[in-house]
Nucleic acid binder design. Structure first.
Length: 454
RNA sequence: GUCCCCUUCGUCUAGCCCGGUCCAGGACACCUCGUUUUCAUCGAAGUAACUGGGGUUCGAAUCCCCAAGGGGACGCCA
């Protein structure tokens, strides 16, 4: 069997949409799973709407999500150029081929594909005008996801516009032929177009590739598919909000496909190993940012400490929480005790600012809650302070100090935790308290407790 | 309007091909309890679904038909 060749063919006319990213991803996964080639082809035939800026965004987002291509912009390949705007001569040649066969004709300055079948003129309700209908034989598609789908085209359609530019359906098929594409994996919104494409393949006398039409991603609520306006629709957004690219990619895999073993959060190598087109779903899926956020949190907590530090350091530096003079060792020490509690990179600065500055924010709700349990917080801290001051600065000794004070004052040791946490961090929750005390250090801790108690 | 696709908890889904093991399993969310803390972790428990109607069958989430609902396509956009 010949090698799998798949392609992702975006047109740079807008931001990189989550649906496009998922289509690219499934193609990429299939190529990597089968050891085939993943080709990136830029469909920039619409001169009016194309832009360099959009192209850059698409390329950047592909890199960010870790989807590398074997042929295409920047890497070349044997079937280039990979920009359709540079392939016009080829399209003209191929059009002539169809014209010579009598399958393409010129009308109103444009070139049309001639369908084979009986013709009649009828009034079309949708178009609100008289049109020429053709009774063409239905095209039969054996879709890898949908199964057998039959559909008949009933009108000739445009191949080349009157301005001399070819249209999508034509260039898409010509390039799939020329680039020897074996599998076309694309969104279900193209399912109805496939009969057109099959007609073109037939006109060329070429066997079409295998098709797999994957389900669409629907809005979280409300009708219809995700559109660029919807929150969470653009890949850029996740980049800005410090999502882990691996997590975004992982969640995207779950939208339209389920691994056989039921595991959801897993490394990309594992997904590549398990990915099968036959397991791709047939029904559309609704986008759920909460689940994506969960996948992100899980991924974050599973990161090796060094990698966690690498993703944390930039935002901590940018927000001024961590200065350049903070050593990697110190940063890793702090991150080490919070990682298991962390839920997003975005919230890291506020979460651990108190380790690096005395001017941390104080959570009013946390303060209000203090006296509900454990009584007067300032009194608690005063009770605790002498014993804590005398204690050795390691977790077992600190714990013993809390217990001792609790026993003396007739209270649970935990009655002291919330006041202490608030006094040193301004927060109502966070990482394991004894660990926080240890890492924060004796001097800083005692100073903040003193300040709170006076 | 025409054509195409889809239909299991609020959401993502497993199961469906090869009907009984499913009074339907998991995950997210939610709710409750627990945990060295009172909503960022973690643990335990809970609420919650086979769109409807016919049929086939001893037996249907699973097979067939119809209906309804959802989605998509009908451009000299891609």
């Amino acid at each position: 069997m010949s090698q799998v060749r798949v392609r992702f063919a975006p047109s740079p006319t807008g931001f990189f949409h989550i649906g496009s990213a998922r289509t690219a991803l499934f193609n990429w996964l299939y190529a990597r799973h089968t050891g085939g080639k993943f080709i990136l082809r830029i469909e920039d035939t619409d001169k009016e709407r194309n832009s360099e800026a959009f192209l850059k965004i698409i390329l950047d987002s592909m890199h960010w999500l870790g989807m590398d291509w074997d042929e295409g912009p920047g890497v070349g390949g044997d079937f280039g150029p990979y920009f359709q705007s540079q392939r016009t001569e080829l399209y003209r040649t191929k059009l002539k081929e169809l014209a010579d066969k009598g399958r393409a004709y010129e009308k109103d300055g444009a070139w049309w594909l001639r369908l084979e079948g009986a013709r009649s003129t009828v009034f079309d309700d949708h178009l609100k005008k008289e049109i020429e209908k053709v009774e063409a034989a239905p095209m039969v598609l054996e879709d890898l996801v949908r199964g057998r789908v039959e559909r008949a085209e009933d009108r000739d359609f445009v191949l080349f516009r009157s301005n001399g530019e070819p249209v999508f359906h034509f260039v898409n098929v010509v390039d799939d032929i020329e680039m020897k594409i074996t599998h076309v994996i694309r969104g279900e919104d193209h399912l109805s177009n496939t009969s057109k494409h099959l007609e073109i393949f037939k006109a060329f006398g070429v066997t079409p590739p295998h098709y797999a039409h994957i389900p669409l991603i629907l809005k979280t609520d409300g009708p219809g598919k995700m559109s660029k306006r919807d929150r969470g629709a653009l890949i850029e957004e996740y980049q800005q909000r410090r999502y882990l690219p691996a997590a975004v990619r992982n969640y995207l895999c779950l939208l339209g496909w389920t691994p056989a073993d039921g595991k959801e959060v897993m490394p990309i190598e594992e997904i590549v190993r398990q990915f099968e087109i036959s397991a791709v779903h047939q029904s559309n899926a609704r986008f759920d940012e909460r689940k994506m956020s969960h996948v992100n949190a899980q991924t974050l907590r599973l990161l090796p400490p060094a990698e966690f530090a690498a993703v944390a350091r930039p935002i901590l530096t940018e927000t001024g929480v961590v200065h350049a003079d903070v050593s990697d060792a110190r940063l890793t020490e702090v991150l080490g005790i919070v990682q298991e509690k962390v839920v997003s990179v975005e919230h890291l600065p506020e979460f651990l600012a108190f380790f690096f500055t005395d001017k941390f924010n104080k959570d009013e709700n946390a303060l209000a809650n203090l006296s509900k349990k454990g009584g007067e917080p300032v009194t608690r801290v005063r009770e605790l302070l002498p014993t804590l001051t005398a204690a050795a600065w390691e977790e077992a000794a600190l714990e013993a100090a809390f217990t001792a004070v609790g026993t003396t004052c007739g209270r649970k040791p935990t009655d002291y935790f919330a006041p202490v946490r608030y006094a040193i961090s301004g927060q109502g929750g966070g990482a394991h308290l004894l660990g926080v005390l240890r890492v924060l250090g004796r001097d800083t801790t005692l100073a903040r407790l003193q300040a709170f108690a006076t």
